[in-house]
Simulated scan of single mutants.
Amino acid sequence: MRAVESRYSAEKHMASVNLIFDDEQTTYLRELSEKMNLDFGEFIPHATLINVAEQDIPRLKLAAAALPSLDKLVLDGVNFLPDEVGNCVWVELRVQKTSWMVEVRRKLLEILDDIHPGLDIDGFRPRITLGCVEAGTLGDVNMSAIPRQLPVITKPRAAACYNGVHGKVVEVVE
């Protein structure tokens, strides 16, 4: 099985505000990705709150800092999402969409109104991407690596991030 890169253009997702996790939880997610035979690569595990087309990192840092804190993220399953052209399948952990998430998404859309690419609250689908595989190789994904009871991610924190050339988070900007 070979990992594939997203077909999204870098202009579409230059930067983002995400929920990121402590070192132990990040390590757990990377190890789960490996056990499932996915290639996580250089990407940082996260739950996206908003992607934007501009790299106004100072403004994104201010937006992230303005968000209220969150005690936990509850993971409730695995999604398999084919890309738009059918070349790959994204493997994701579903995150429960809580009222907190809906409210911070609304707040981010308001704060970043002039730089987000026409996003809305209803289309928001919280998740943690574990990897991407070529279409047709999904059978090589080790589903037995997924625990019966997914862990709760405790004390995630909002942060501004740079998304790199493939549109995936590669740097948390402190």
Rank of each mutant, 00 (worst) to 15 (best):
M1R: 14
R2T: 11
V4A: 12
E5Y: 05
S6L: 05
S6W: 01
E11D: 15
K12G: 08
M14N: 05
S16A: 15
V17I: 11
V17D: 10
L19Q: 11
L19H: 04
I20G: 00
I20H: 06
D22H: 06
L29F: 06
R30S: 07
E31I: 11
E31A: 13
E31Q: 15
L32S: 09
L32R: 05
S33R: 02
E34W: 00
K35G: 03
L38Y: 12
D39C: 03
F40P: 06
F40V: 01
E42V: 04
F43H: 14
I44C: 05
P45S: 08
H46V: 04
T48G: 04
L49R: 10
I50C: 00
N51V: 03
V52E: 11
Q55M: 08
P58R: 00
L60V: 01
K61C: 09
K61Y: 03
L62N: 14
L62T: 13
A64F: 07
A64W: 07
L67N: 11
P68H: 08
P68N: 10
D71Y: 03
D71W: 05
K72Q: 14
V74G: 02
G77T: 08
G77A: 12
V78S: 02
F80G: 12
L81E: 15
P82T: 12
E84A: 05
E84T: 06
V85H: 10
G86W: 03
G86K: 09
N87C: 11
N87Y: 12
C88N: 06
V89P: 11
E92L: 15
L93Q: 11
R94K: 13
K97V: 04
S99I: 06
S99F: 01
S99E: 15
W100V: 10
M101G: 15
M101D: 07
R105T: 10
R106N: 14
R106V: 02
R106A: 15
L108I: 03
L108N: 12
L109H: 11
E110K: 13
I111V: 12
I115V: 13
G118W: 13
G118P: 00
L119C: 01
D120M: 01
D120R: 04
I121P: 00
I121Y: 00
D122P: 01
F124D: 03
P126G: 06
I128C: 08
I128G: 09
I128L: 11
T129L: 07
L130W: 03
L130T: 04
L130C: 06
A135R: 14
G136A: 05
T137A: 11
L138W: 00
V141D: 09
S144T: 15
S144W: 02
A145M: 05
I146S: 03
P147D: 11
P147V: 10
P147S: 10
Q149V: 14
P151I: 13
P151Q: 13
V152W: 06
I153P: 08
P156D: 14
R157V: 05
R157A: 01
A158T: 14
C161A: 15
Y162V: 14
N163W: 01
G164W: 03
G164E: 13
H166F: 10
V170F: 01
V172D: 05
E174F: 02
